[in-house]
Every structure is written in structure tokens, then in C-alpha cells.
């Protein structure tokens, strides 16, 4: 019985997410070219933030997620430029590099305790940056100058729908993981790794696998970002020296509510355009308005972490849950009353 209920609600949730994504895409298309571009970034950062929250929900806080994002971007560009691969194929094949890097990083991270994962992933980003600008890799990466990529071979009116479909696919992947055996294992690992081991869960294996999946998703986001939005790859995608690219998925996930993919969606849909708006407004006032916008975002993160550690969605979900529980208790009380009157 409970199974059916769960399946039903999962289905409804998926529909709701599809509807939200479709509305974002449709509304922005009607509004014009610039909003369409913003909507593409929403799709990209939704995928990216999901990749971060997948790790976070397995007890691993990545502070260097941009490593995979940038790897995906570079792999896409290099496959398309240096190896002449069709960009559409490169968009999906490139992120395999992210998956491989994810497996390698995950193999180590799975053996590290709590905050060491953060410092380890964080520390990889300067190394990635160093590689990107190194003279040895110059022929492929174009060093500090960055790479301009060829035009994505789809009609530009299809870019946003394409991004939307990919975003929904990423959401489905997360939901499928959640509903399968592996999802239960990941929750258990997240809550108590020792107890998870006791009930037979191989935490290291699952953590490594999850890092691989997350690496692919983050890299896909990086490739989408380049293919559908910037047409340009810069070494600072590694989140170094400016940590922005590693911090954005944390912002969106934490403020929206990393505990569920819907929360992450909420965070991305609300904050991505808000950030762009604040940034362009402040940039109009001053050349460093962008930095001021980021200060505001930093403050927002701090306030949410202090006041609503489970994010906006966590707040809402808690409210709904408590109402449901009350209704259930009321119903139980009703049944008991019936039984006792029946006696």
C-alpha cells in the first residue's frame, strides 16, 4: 500500500518538475532572446547543482565541484576542436572525462572523513587550473587565453528545449537513484556510515560510484554551459582563483534545499535569474557591482544556513509533513474512538 502511495507521489513530483521546467522555458522564449539565455543557464545550473547535492546527500561535501564542470567544458571543446568530433556527440562523450575524474576523486574521498573531502576536492581546483594553463597542454587548451568553440549544430531556437530536456533527464536520474536500492543505501551512508556498514552496505564502493555519476553530471553541465551559452572555455571554470564556479551549486542547493531535487530546482529557478538581475543592476551602477552582488549572495547563504539549514524547500516540506502527521493522528484517534464505542 505504502509502495503505491510512494510511486504515485514520485510520479506527481516528476510531473510538477516537468511543468516548472516547461513553464520556465516557454515563458522565457516568449520574453525574448536574453531571457532565453538566462533560462539556458537555469537548466545548466540545475544539472550542476543536482550533481553537487547528490554528493552532499551521500555525506560528501565537494568544495571543488568546478573541477568536473571545467573538465566537461574542456573535454567538450577539445573533442570538438582538436579531434573534430560532432559537437552533439562531444556534449555527451566529453563528460565521460568528468565521470572518470569523479571515480578517481571518489575512490580517495570515500576513504576520507567528513571535512577532508571538502579540502581534498577544494585543493584539486588549483591543480586543474595549473593543468589548463600549462605550456605542455597549451596546444589543446589554448592556455590562459581560453578556447572558442564551434557553433552548436542545432537551430538556436532548439537550444533551450534541448537544455530543458537534459535538465529533466538529470532530475529523473536523481529520482531513479532515490527510489532504487542504491538510494536507500545512500541515505543510510549519509546518516550513519558505521551503522550502514553494519547492515551490509559497502559505503566506499557506493561513494565512489556516486562520485562518478556526480562527475558526469557536473561535466555535462560544463559542456552544456559552453555548447549552449558561452561558446567559450576559460581556465577560471575550474573555480580558481575566483571560487565562484565551485560555490554556485552550493548556493542554489543549500538555499533551495539540498535534501530533495525539487528544493534544488527551487533554488536554481529563484536564484539564478535573481543573481543575474542584481548583478546587471549593480553593474550598471559600478564596475564592481558584480562583486557587490556576490557579497549579497554570500550573506544570503550565511543567513539561510543559520536560520533555515534545510533551505526554503525544507521549510515547506516540514510544514506539509507536520500537517500530514496531524491528519494521520486525527484519523487514528477517530478509528480508536470507533473501536471503543463498538465495544
Amino acid at each position: 500500500m505504502s509502495m503505491k502511495l510512494d510511486l504515485g507521489s514520485t510520479f506527481i513530483r516528476a510531473i510538477a518538475v516537468a511543468v516548472v521546467l516547461a513553464i520556465v522555458a516557454a515563458a522565457s522564449t516568449i520574453m525574448g532572446t536574453y531571457p532565453t539565455l538566462i533560462a539556458i543557464t537555469i537548466m545548466v545550473f540545475f544539472v550542476y547543482s543536482l550533481s553537487w547535492s547528490l554528493l552532499a546527500n551521500t555525506g560528501m561535501v565537494s568544495l571543488g565541484q568546478a573541477l568536473f564542470f571545467a573538465l566537461g567544458a574542456y573535454a567538450y571543446g577539445i573533442f570538438a576542436i582538436s579531434y573534430g568530433m560532432n559537437p552533439i556527440a562531444a556534449l555527451f562523450v566529453g563528460p565521460v572525462m568528468g565521470a572518470l575524474a569523479g571515480l578517481a576523486v571518489g575512490f580517495i574521498s570515500a576513504r576520507l572523513r567528513d571535512w577532508y573531502v571538502g579540502i581534498f576536492t577544494f585543493a584539486l581546483t588549483p591543480a586543474g587550473y595549473a593543468l589548463a594553463v600549462s605550456s605542455q597542454l597549451q596546444p589543446w587548451t589554448a592556455g590562459a587565453v581560453g578556447l572558442a568553440t564551434p557553433r552548436f549544430p542545432l537551430g538556436s531556437s532548439l537550444w533551450l528545449p534541448f537544455a530543458t530536456v537534459l535538465a529533466f533527464a538529470a532530475y529523473l536520474v536523481i529520482m531513479i537513484i532515490k527510489k532504487r536500492r542504491i538510494g536507500y543505501a545512500l541515505s543510510a551512508i549519509n546518516n550513519d556510515e558505521t551503522a550502514a556498514g553494519t547492515v551490509g552496505i559497502n559505503a566506499r564502493l557506493y561513494k565512489t560510484i556516486v562520485f562518478g555519476i556526480s562527475g558526469y553530471m557536473a561535466a555535462l553541465a560544463g559542456a552544456m554551459f559552453v555548447a549552449l551559452y558561452t561558446s567559450y572555455i576559460a581556465p577560471d571554470y575550474f573555480g580558481y582563483p575566483d571560487i565562484s564556479y565551485s560555490v554556485w551549486p552550493i548556493f542554489y542547493s543549500m538555499i533551495g534545499g539540498m535534501g530533495s531535487p525539487e528544493g534544488v530546482l527551487l533554488g536554481t529557478v529563484l536564484l539564478d535569474p535573481l543573481e543575474t538581475a542584481i548583478r546587471s543592476w549593480l553593474s550598471g551602477i559600478s564596475v564592481v557591482g558584480g562583486n557587490l552582488a556576490l557579497v549579497i549572495f554570500g550573506l544570503l547563504l550565511v543567513v539561510v544556513l543559520l536560520k533555515a539549514p534545510k533551505g526554503i524547500y525544507g521549510y515547506v516540506a516540514k510544514y506539509v509533513e507536520s500537517r500530514k502527521a496531524r491528519a494521520r493522528r486525527a484519523a487514528e484517534a477517530g478509528t480508536k474512538a470507533e473501536v471503543s464505542t463498538g465495544q
Binding site: 536500492r181 536507500y184 543510510a188 546518516n191 551503522a195 550502514a196 547492515v199 551490509g200
Partner: peptide
């Protein structure tokens, strides 16, 4: 565990189910 160590993100039934899924045998969710 003498001091209980539940999985707080899983419902009570799923706390037990996850042990059945992974314990001595590998069982499907249902």
C-alpha cells in the same frame, strides 16, 4: 546498537527495509 543509531532520513519502515535489502542477502526494494 546499545545507543540507537537510526538512519534519520529514512522512514521507520525503510530503516528496517534497507537492512533487509543489504543484510545477508541482496533483496529488491519491494
Amino acid at each position: 546498537y546499545q545507543v540507537p543509531r537510526p538512519f534519520n532520513d529514512l522512514k521507520v519502515i525503510d530503516n528496517v527495509a534497507v537492512a533487509a535489502m543489504y543484510g545477508s542477502k541482496d533483496l529488491p526494494v519491494g
